[in-house]
Computed example of a mutant assay.
Amino acid sequence: MVKSMTGFGRAEANQGAYKILVEMKSVNHRFCEFNIRMPKQFLVLEEKIKKAVGSYLQRGRVEMFITVEGQNIHEHSLDVDWQLLSAYIDVLHKVKDKHQISGSIDINDILKLENVFTIREAQTGLEEIEKVLLEQVRLATEQLVSMRTLEGEQLKEDIFVHLTYIESMARELQQFAPTVVEAYRKRLEKKMKDFLDSQIDEQRIMAEAAIFADRADINEELKRIHSHLGQFTQSLHSREPVGRKLDFLVQELNREVNTIGSKANDAKIANLVVEMKACLEKIKEQVQNIE
Rank of each mutant, 00 (worst) to 15 (best):
M1T: 11
A11Q: 01
N14R: 13
G16F: 04
A17W: 02
K19W: 05
V22I: 08
E23W: 12
K25I: 15
N28S: 10
H29V: 01
F31K: 01
E33W: 05
P39G: 05
F42H: 05
E47T: 06
E47I: 07
K48F: 03
G60A: 09
V68S: 10
G70H: 04
Q71G: 06
E75H: 04
L78A: 09
Q83V: 11
Q83A: 14
L84S: 12
Y88I: 10
L92T: 05
K94G: 00
D97K: 05
S102W: 11
N108Y: 07
D109E: 14
I110Y: 05
I110L: 15
E114M: 15
V116A: 01
T118Y: 02
I119V: 09
E121W: 00
A122Q: 04
T124Q: 03
T124V: 02
G125I: 00
L126S: 01
E127F: 02
E127W: 03
E128D: 12
E130D: 10
L139R: 11
S146I: 00
M147L: 04
L150F: 15
E151V: 07
E157L: 14
F160D: 10
L163Q: 14
I166W: 09
I166T: 11
S168Q: 15
E182V: 10
E182G: 02
K186D: 09
E189V: 04
F195I: 12
F195H: 09
S198C: 12
Q199K: 13
D201Q: 06
Q203V: 14
I205E: 09
A207I: 10
A209W: 01
A209K: 08
D217W: 04
L222Q: 05
K223Y: 11
K223H: 10
H228M: 10
G230F: 07
S235K: 08
S238W: 09
R244S: 05
K245I: 10
F248S: 03
L249N: 13
V257A: 12
T259S: 06
G261E: 06
S262H: 07
A264Y: 08
K268C: 00
K268I: 03
A270P: 08
A270S: 15
N271W: 12
N271A: 15
V273E: 10
V273A: 08
E275Y: 13
K282G: 13
E285T: 02
V287R: 02
N289W: 03
